[in-house]
Nucleic acid binder design. Structure first.
Lengths: 316, 316
DNA sequence: ATTTTCGATCAAGTTTTTCTTAACTGAAAT
DNA sequence: ATTTCAGTTAAGAAAAACTTGATCGAAAAT
């Protein structure tokens, strides 16, 4: 296997040139003179035995060989630089990058993040609210808080306990609808954010849990769990909403959960980071703070009867 | 973003050392002295600001940082070397690497390959019979002949016409079973190699195509299309077999296809190679030979009535 | 218990690679 | 017609990578 790899500097020069389609810009990116870059490409072409660029009068374009090499080279260097920056990140104990979904961010994290920042002024926190799957090994993200049924292999992950749903409404509405039976006549808000689950929680499940046989036919539907709560706070109706999303509004009195019966789904949030990075100072600090905050609200639903959804018969 | 990438030579030295878990072996791989390699690792560690290896008395082990970097580095260099060798392959017009599934290889390609080798003594053919999906952009394979419903994006692909199924048997058996009705009493061989299709072809489909209402309840099943044909050649029974798999045995008289009715499935074989590599001499030669060979056998089933499976009603 | 061996390291000097400067080319833009 | 721009070339300078040969410390061998 002759020449498994050409000189790497030359290959990197080619990568930059192919990305910019310009030797001058590539030279600039690599902080060298155009002459040096030109020479590197020439070296690489000699190793290959064929041209990689066709030199036009005022531009360059890739040859056949160049088109084959360019994407692979770009990909290879991308991986190297991802790995390198992941390694460098390990040295850095002052910044922390966290990602979570938009709903949890809006309803749980955002209102509390200021508290964390106050308690840890040394940590430079950066936050990314997205549902996109992030690869902790490759992207510049330290911690992901994600909702799902199973914990991923090869990652440190810790479950967030108590994800269940219970009806919530404004205090004003609660005065009008005082029993589960009464709720059947209330305007209902339907949370569709868990519809990807094998057994999504529905209003009829909760009604059944409290011994009322009722399947709602109308209701305002939202696909984002935060919008469900926003609608309930606005007094639009009664929402069967998820605990993490309502806890703040319950604490602040904007919502009440008058019926101590909740249904528990088969999935939950998880705090996740790369295995063995859970002990880096800023990650450990965030983790401890995160679970301590959760602990603080544990008493709020004392006495609630939480019923796993699997124990509710599924008759449609 | 300071230091997007460390010196690449140092990174490559680290990669080799991490793979071998030994500086000496790594130095040997890279054809340098252990001293040089040791120095490279030291350079890399200085760039990082932390140790990558823990030096034990007679061995080395990765530190936390090393464990983070190693897999990404290995992956990155692997991609680079794949891309480089793919590009080098372009320069080489004397070797040709082809992959196809075991069935097509056994029943179609293998008997004909000698002919190709004779006609092109200058081409150094290497062959790989596997069902594993190969990435033509990354692996050392020029041509893949694969069965499927759709042609892949970003690849040159050309369909192999006429993939359909018809009953075949030995001439001896054909004397005993002379009509489609008679076949219902013959021992049947069932080809399960197409069971992954949305509408797999079954015996009852063929019977329906010839106007016989019969759903076989017994039959010997094979998951490999070549074994189906082997069983038929051995006289085990009547097989509803695929054209490409039987053509050779039909030509040589080991099998006959007495009923000129065939059912066509929604998938076919395709000749595939990287876009724009279809004109490299050895690939063009193989393609031309391949489709010429197919053309040679076109007349054999003249007069056959080929019915698309979608036109046969699907009542179970 | 001593000696040997092995893998890693260090220091000094050498080779090779890589870079810069500065002059050059030729087509496109003005 | 002149300027400008992108790339090239050549020669020398700087930096990187490598080798040699000595050193070190613990494991393996005796």
């Amino acid at each position: 296997m002759p020449d498994r790899l050409p000189p790497l500097t030359a290959l990197r020069a080619f990568d930059a040139a192919a990305r910019h389609m310009s030797f001058a810009k590539a030279a600039n990116e690599l902080n060298v003179t155009p002459a040096a870059l030109s020479f590197q490409i020439k070296t690489l072409e000699e190793h290959l035995g064929d041209k990689l660029f066709r030199r036009l009068n005022r531009a360059v374009e890739l040859t056949e060989a160049g088109r084959i090499l360019a994407p692979g080279a770009a990909d290879g260097f991308l991986r190297l630089s991802e790995a390198w920056s992941a390694t460098r990140r390990l040295q850095n104990n002052t910044t922390l990058t966290v990602t979570a979904g938009p709903a949890l961010t809006a309803k749980w994290l955002a209102p509390r993040l200021y508290d964390f920042a106050q308690a840890h002024p040394d940590i430079d926190l950066s936050f990314s609210a997205t549902l996109r799957t992030v690869d902790l090994h490759r992207e510049d993200v330290d911690v992901a808080i994600r909702f799902g049924t199973s914990s991923p292999e090869e990652l440190y992950s810790r479950q967030v306990p108590n994800d269940w749903l219970t009806p919530v409404m404004t205090p004003e509405l609660a005065e009008r609808f005082t029993t589960p039976e009464a709720i059947t006549h209330a305007p209902l808000i339907i949370d569709e954010s868990l519809h990807f689950l094998p057994r999504p929680p529905r209003w009829q499940d909760w009604f059944q849990a409290v011994g009322v046989d009722f399947t709602p036919e109308h209701g305002t539907r939202f696909s984002g769990a935060n919008h469900v709560v926003d609608a309930a706070v606005a007094g639009m109706g009664v929402a069967l909403a998820r605990r993490p999303m309502i806890i703040k509004d319950i604490q602040d009195g904007r919502l009440v959960a008058p019926f101590p019966t909740a249904i528990e789904v088969s999935a939950c949030f998880r705090f996740m980071c790369i295995n063995s990075s859970q002990d880096r100072p800023q990650i450990a600090a965030f983790r401890d703070w995160f679970f301590a905050e959760i602990g603080k609200t544990a008493h709020i639903f004392d006495g609630f009867n939480v019923i796993p959804i699997d124990e509710i018969s599924d008759h449609d």
